[in-house]
Design a protein around this nucleic acid. Structure first.
Length: 223
DNA sequence: CATTGATCATAA
DNA sequence: TTATGATCAATG
């Protein structure tokens, strides 16, 4: 593997310069610059493109529960686009804290810290385009507006209230305007400790926070 | 055909 | 083992 830049970006501007160079380039180009081979399909490499971009841009966070660019507090998210140029998938944000000891305020939450500043990188993702030929779009450096944050916060609060009051099993992906909670696991047999409907701690499916496609669509439209 | 629930790879 | 990176695929 070849490292393209000497270290992590020190400023947002430096990050944007690095990302802007990729606009219009293909995934083949992105991989070639780093002497990494593209997988034949994303089927068995679902996060490959995101990882490739992190490496290219100089992220050092690894799999720490932190924004990708810790030095400047920016989170990197790819945004897969369908044939119409709209987001085709929801966006994973972070793990849902299920235990009482893990609870925080909205201000301290990982959801807020990650979504405070996001570098969105649109990627062509229509199934008809071969992976190597899919193009990277122009980067969007985004922060939630006041109204957006208000709704994100309300979603988070509503969902976390359910988590801590033993209503976890009543949470479905239908809840939440912008944010939703869905399974985030190796498979349906994966288990995590959580608060049961009797208030005890028992085993449950690990969950994650996701941004709905209809929300990321508006982010894209506003640019 | 959009959405929900399920799943795959990998690093520390 | 549990977080990251996400997309797949069944379902309504």
């Amino acid at each position: 593997m070849t490292t393209v830049f000497p270290g992590p970006p020190r400023t947002e501007q430096e990050l944007m310069e690095r990302a802007s160079e990729l606009a219009g380039k293909t995934l083949q180009y992105l991989a070639s610059r780093q002497n990494i081979e593209l997988p034949v399909s994303l089927n068995r490499a679902k996060g490959h493109i995101g990882t490739l971009l992190e490496k290219y841009l100089g992220s050092t966070a690894g799999s720490l529960p932190e924004p990708d660019f810790r030095e400047i507090g920016v989170e990197l998210k790819t945004l897969p686009l369908n044939k119409q140029g709209r987001p085709k998938e929801s966006t994973y944000v972070c793990v849902v804290p299920l235990l009482p000891a893990e609870q925080t305020t909205w201000e301290q939450s990982l959801v807020k810290r990650k979504l405070s500043r996001v570098l969105w990188l649109p990627i062509e993702a229509d199934a008809e385009i071969p992976l190597p030929r899919r193009r990277i779009g122009s980067p969007i450096l985004w922060s939630p507006g006041a109204t957006q944050e208000k709704i994100l916060r309300a979603d988070w609060q509503e969902l976390m209230d359910m988590v801590i009051t033993g209503e976890l099993e009543n949470i479905s992906a239908r809840l939440g305007h912008y944010l939703q909670i869905r399974p985030k696991a190796q498979n349906a047999r994966s288990l995590r400790q959580g608060i049961s409907n009797t208030g005890d701690i028992n085993a449950t499916l690990p969950r994650g926070f996701y941004l709905r496609t209809r929300f990321t669509r508006t982010i894209l439209q506003n640019h």
